[in-house]
Amino acid sequence: MATPFTGEGERRKGSVELRALAARRLRPVADRGAPGRVNRPLLATLGELGLLSRVVPLAGPVRALDLCLLRESLAYSCTEAETALALQGLGAHPVVAHGNRAQRARWLPEIAAGRAVAAFALSEPGAGSDAAALELRAEPAGAVSGVAAGAVGWRLHGEKRWISNAPQADVYTVFARTGPGSRAAGVTAFLVPADRPGLGGEPLEMLGPHPLGTLTFDGVPVGPGDVVGEVGRGFRLAMATLDLFRPSVGAFAVGMARAALDASVAHAGERRAFGGPLKDLQAVSHLLAEMATRTEAAGLLVQAAATAYDAGEPGVAARSAMAKLFATETAQYVVDSAVQIHGARALARGHLLEHLYREVRAPRIYEGASEVQRTIIAKELYR
Rank of each mutant, 00 (worst) to 15 (best):
P125W: 01
G126L: 13
G126N: 11
G126P: 06
G128E: 15
S129H: 14
S129V: 11
D130N: 14
A131M: 08
A132T: 10
A133G: 07
A133W: 02
L134Q: 01
L134E: 03
E135H: 04
R137M: 00
R137W: 00
R137T: 02
E139C: 07
E139G: 04
P140Y: 14
A141C: 10
A141W: 01
A141N: 11
A141L: 07
A143V: 07
S145R: 13
S145T: 10
G146W: 08
G146F: 07
V147W: 00
A148H: 05
A148L: 07
A149L: 15
G153M: 02
W154T: 02
W154I: 03
R155L: 04
R155F: 06
L156N: 07
L156C: 11
H157R: 09
E159Y: 09
E159H: 11
E159N: 04
K160P: 02
R161W: 09
R161K: 14
W162D: 09
S164K: 07
S164P: 00
S164Y: 13
A166W: 12
P167N: 05
Q168A: 15
A169Q: 10
D170N: 15
D170Y: 15
V171I: 15
V171Y: 06
V171A: 14
V171F: 08
V171D: 01
V171M: 09
Y172L: 08
Y172F: 15
Y172A: 10
T173K: 00
T173V: 10
V174L: 02
F175Y: 11
A176V: 02
R177F: 03
T178F: 00
G179N: 14
G179Y: 13
G179I: 12
P180A: 12
G181C: 12
S182C: 13
R183C: 08
A184M: 14
A184C: 13
A185L: 12
G186D: 02
V187N: 01
T188R: 01
F190P: 01
F190W: 05
